[in-house]
Simulated assay, not measured.
Amino acid sequence: MPLCNNSSCDIAVAVALLFTGALYICFSSRLISDPIADLQRSVNNQRRTKFPVDELEAALDRAAAGNNKTVIIAMVNKAYVEDVGVERTMMDLFLESFWQGEGTLPLLDHLLMVAADQTAYDRCRYRRLHCYKMETDGVDLEGEKVYMSKDFIEMMWRRTRLLLDVLRRGYHIIFTDTDVMWLRNPFSRLSNNGSLDIQISVDGGHAINTGFYHVRSNNRTINLFQKWYDMRLTSKGMKEQDVLKKLLHSGYFDQLGLAVGFLKTTFFSGFCEDSTDMGAVTTVHANCCVHIPAKISDLTLVLRDWKSYKASHVNTKWSPHVNCRRSWKDTHYTPKH
């Protein structure tokens, strides 16, 4: 007796063929290379990569907690945390600006101080901040590194390498030099909707300054920082800021599809170009200045001017940056070690 009649056997065969065909299409489609899909899978896998919970990761996690994976990073060494003969330290002034600024005190919870030596790390811990001691591979980064000296350039490149590592770990960064006074919460002046990859301060016009910038972690910015850091090998004697300018003017930013915002000096001021509006100024950077004692003297006046403004709300001119102007002619200056 047959197991099935002709019609039922035909239906069974047809169903089996359809099922086999569906399985073939399913598995063969996975074998066919789709460049766009492969790239997207690669990006997603990179983002899911788990970094080891080392000291840096632990420090970043603490500092970025509750702040959408955004961390404020500043770098200090012994020269920035010890008295250089002007009673206060650069770190003292930097932290005081957060206390004196409008809406800035809570931001200390998201500040990570990167120490280049043990003295700076110990002082950071004493101030009960989020601290990380950067690996320096035996290079001495302790004393003051005068602008454009060999050690200054080396320190800037070490900083760039660290920030590249932070971006790779998926953290967004606000980097700030320690000679930047935070007078207002900058988040209200920054685009935080993801439309800009980098927002960077300027000395005037589009002359970028790497003393203050906001960078989002994504493939474009990671590629930029990798290229930037790699160029140190062919840019002997150039500081990292000039190399970044070179990349910008070469069109490399455009090649990566980077969206860049330049922060106006009205809001993100500096000694190169003062903001004329104390009612709008957010940060003040002691750029266009050579050494630490001059910066401390003139930034002390900045905080004094700021306190006067807060008491009166009368917009006045900043005190002249006399010591910083003189620092360019101070050829006999010897850094303290």
Rank of each mutant, 00 (worst) to 15 (best):
M1T: 15
C9G: 04
D10N: 10
D10K: 09
I11Y: 11
V13G: 01
A14C: 07
L17P: 02
T20P: 02
G21R: 01
L23V: 15
L31T: 08
I36Y: 09
I36M: 04
I36V: 14
A37C: 05
D38F: 03
Q40E: 15
R47H: 12
T49Y: 06
P52N: 06
P52A: 12
V53K: 10
E57N: 06
A58E: 15
A58V: 11
D61L: 00
R62G: 00
A63T: 10
A64L: 00
N67Y: 03
K69A: 10
V71I: 09
A74E: 08
A74R: 00
M75N: 10
V76G: 06
K78R: 10
V84E: 13
D92R: 01
S97V: 08
F98A: 05
E102L: 02
G103P: 03
G103A: 06
L105S: 13
L105A: 14
D109R: 08
Q118V: 14
A120G: 12
Y121R: 00
R123H: 13
C124Y: 11
Y126C: 01
R128A: 10
L129K: 03
H130N: 15
Y132D: 07
M134C: 05
E135G: 06
E135T: 12
D137Q: 07
D137Y: 10
L141K: 06
G143Q: 13
E144K: 03
K145Q: 14
K145D: 15
D151K: 01
D151S: 11
M155T: 05
M155R: 13
R158D: 12
R158E: 13
L164Y: 15
V166I: 15
H172P: 00
R184G: 09
P186A: 07
R189T: 13
L190R: 04
N192I: 13
N193W: 11
N193C: 07
N193M: 05
D197L: 02
I198R: 03
D203F: 04
G205C: 04
H206R: 05
I208D: 11
I208R: 06
Y213L: 08
H214N: 12
N219E: 15
T221Q: 11
I222M: 07
N223L: 06
N223Q: 14
L224Q: 13
D230N: 11
D230I: 07
M231F: 14
R232L: 07
S235I: 07
K236Q: 12
G237W: 10
G237T: 12
M238I: 11
K239P: 09
K239L: 04
E240P: 02
K246F: 14
G251Q: 11
Y252C: 07
F253I: 03
D254M: 04
L258D: 02
G261I: 09
K264T: 14
T266C: 04
D274N: 13
D277G: 02
A280R: 10
A280W: 05
V281P: 05
V284F: 15
N287M: 02
C289L: 01
C289I: 02
P293N: 03
D298H: 04
L299D: 06
R304T: 14
D305G: 08
W306D: 06
K307L: 04
Y309S: 06
K310M: 08
S312E: 14
V314H: 10
S319E: 15
C324H: 07
Y333M: 00
T334D: 04
K336F: 13
H337G: 06
